[in-house]
Every structure is written in C-alpha cells, then in structure tokens.
C-alpha cells in the first residue's frame, strides 16, 4: 500500500512540478542569462564525451551489420541501417543517458545540497520562487540542448559507421556509397522523430532531477542518495517513454 501511495505521490509531484515550470517559462526572456549559463554548462559537459560515444556507437553498428549484409551482397545498405538506427533510437537514447548521467546528476547534487543547507528556504524568504529561479532555466536549457546534442551525435555516429564500413575488409564500402544510401533512407520525418524524442527526454530528465533535488531533506548524506535516485529514475523513465513515444509516432504514421 505504501509503495502505491509513494508511486502516486511522486507521479503527482513530477506532473505538478512540470506544470509549474511550464507556467514560469513566461519569464524565460527576463531570465535569459540563467538559461544561457545552463546551456553553456550542458554543452561543456556533454560535447566531448558525446562525440566519443556517438563515434563508437555508429562504429559498432556498422561492425555488426556490415558483414551480415555483405553475405547477401547488399552491404551498401549499411548506410541506411546505421543512419536510421542512429537518428531514431541510438542518438536520442544515448544523448539522454549521457545528459542524465552528467548534467542531471549535477543538477540534483546542486539543488539537493541547496535544500539540505536551507538555501531553498532562504530563497523562499526572499520571495524568490525556486521553480522560477532554479528549475525553469535548467528545464529550458535541457529541452533546447538535447535535440542539438542529438543532431551533433547523429552526424558523428554516421561518420563512425562510414569509417568502420570503409576500413572493415569484409565490407569495404566506399564512403560515397555509404552516404548516398544513408541519404535515401534517412528522411525528414526520421530526423524529426528523433528530435521529438530528444525534447521529451529533456523534459523528463530536467523535471526528475530538479524534483528529486527539491524534495531532499535531512543531512548531507541524503545528497548522494538523491543523485543516485534521480539518475536511475531518469534512465528508467527515458527508456519507458522511448517505447511509448515510438508507439505514438508509429500510430501517427510519423515513423
């Protein structure tokens, strides 16, 4: 019974925080300096690692798929296969996991330490709404940054696939053919599909991580526990929503 109550409490809390954050987005322009600052932090933390992850994800896809396709003599389709998998699934999910692990955890750590050390209370006594001051800039920055990060990782991932296909002696696909095939399969809707997912993941990660941070109470020990909780919950929700969003997109014929 307690677990059920807890589930509804957290779900309600997350939805409530989301609604409040969206409401405060009206002051996004007057707080653009904070949004920008968060964007810089996210970019700084994710771009180098993102490139590495994307390069190897694309590479391993090509490594697995290339020889299999070559057996049937259709190895030029590696381009389409790698291109579509990355743009629709691997790109958004990898980017989300990266952002949750690096950016989300830092958000939870910062906000939960502010909760524990009464800084949130101090904000309230100064009549500064914590959702406007802390959550809204992080929310907007994450929702903007994740799609950009996905495009960046898509491009690098494609390149990783091209590189492996070209070098792998079992496939030996020229880079031209790879990209031509990729361009045939990856159309505009596929890209939009991935970006929609990325934005939804951005919403999930920022809201979950800020919510857990704001709800932290007790001593400094709770900060570490909150970070773990927020990252795990983000991962789970990202993967669960990935499935349902895909279903909805398929239903809408956007897939």
């Amino acid at each position: 019974m307690n677990t059920v109550m807890y589930f509804f409490k957290v779900t309600g809390g997350l939805v409530g925080l989301l609604v409040e954050t969206v409401y405060w987005c009206k002051s996004a322009f007057t707080n653009s300096d904070k949004v920008l600052q968060q964007l810089v932090v996210i970019g700084y933390q994710t771009l180098p690692v993102g490139a590495l992850i994307a390069l190897f994800s694309g590479g391993v896809l090509a490594l697995q798929a290339g020889p299999a396709l070559a057996q049937f003599g259709v190895e030029e389709n590696v381009g389409g296969l790698v291109g579509l998998s990355i743009v629709k699934e691997i790109g958004p999910v990898m980017a989300a996991i990266l952002v949750a692990g690096r950016v989300g955890s830092a958000m939870t750590a910062e906000i939960s330490s502010m909760s524990v050390y009464e800084e949130i209370d101090a904000l309230k006594t100064m009549d500064i709404n914590p959702v406007r001051y802390l959550v809204m800039p992080r929310f907007i920055a994450t929702v903007i940054a994740l799609p950009i990060l996905v495009i960046y990782m898509d491009v690098i991932g494609w390149f990783g696939g091209a590189l492996v296909s070209a070098v792998n002696p079992e496939v030996k696909l020229s880079i031209d053919i790879y990209y031509n095939n990729l361009a045939q399969f990856v159309d505009f809707t596929a890209v939009v599909n991935g970006l929609v997912k990325a934005m939804i993941f951005g919403v999930i990660i920022s809201i979950v991580c800020c919510y857990v941070g704001l709800k932290t109470s007790g001593g400094p020990r709770e900060i570490g526990r909150s970070v773990t909780k927020a990252v795990v919950l983000s991962f789970v929700l990202v993967l669960v929503f990935d499935y349902y969003v895909t279903r909805v997109l398929l239903f809408l014929n956007l897939d």
């Binding site: 910062e110 502010m114 050390y117 209370d121 101090a122 006594t125 100064m126 009549d127």
Partner: peptide, 19 residues
C-alpha cells in the same frame, strides 16, 4: 502576504548561496 509585508531572516546556518 508577501505582497504587503517583507520579512527577512538570518538563518542559524547562514544559508548563503554557495554558487
């Protein structure tokens, strides 16, 4: 209430914004 009155508090822990 906060529109009409301003109350300020110096916390026992100071509660400065560390960032």
């Amino acid at each position: 209430f906060s529109k009409h009155h301003v109350l300020a508090m110096v916390f026992q822990s100071s509660a400065l914004f560390n960032s």
